[in-house]
């Protein structure tokens, strides 16, 4: 139950980071913090249920997916930087509207 409180706090921090920043790398950092919150939630739920083996298997899957998402997202951010010469999301004018 204590872990659930901290999961909510981590989720709030991650969502706030995504909403309040204009830097694309910081947005990715916010997504990372959200994923950490989900990881902590699964481990805490596994411990609460006494089914830690399943929780660990799911966390391993999450970590693999997280790495792939981050690699692709970082590539997209680099492409945007090459095209716009900036990481500011307000300066991305293409695909707008």
């Amino acid at each position: 139950m204590v872990s659930a409180i901290f999961v909510v706090l981590l989720l709030v921090i991650g969502i706030y980071c995504i909403l309040a920043t204009y830097n694309l790398i910081r947005v990715l950092i916010g997504v990372e913090i959200l994923i950490k919150a989900v990881t902590l939630l699964i481990i805490a739920a596994g411990r609460q249920n006494g089914n830690m083996a399943l929780a660990q298997a799911m966390v391993v899957s999450i970590i693999v997916i997280e790495v792939v998402i981050m690699t692709i997202a970082v590539g997209v951010v680099l492409g945007i930087h090459r095209y716009n010469n900036s990481l500011d999301s307000r300066k991305i004018r293409k695909l707008k509207g």
Partner: peptide, 11 residues
């Protein structure tokens, strides 16, 4: 601490 050593090593 929660006995999830395999996931911890991955993390």
């Amino acid at each position: 601490n929660m006995d999830a050593s395999l996931a911890a090593v991955f993390e």
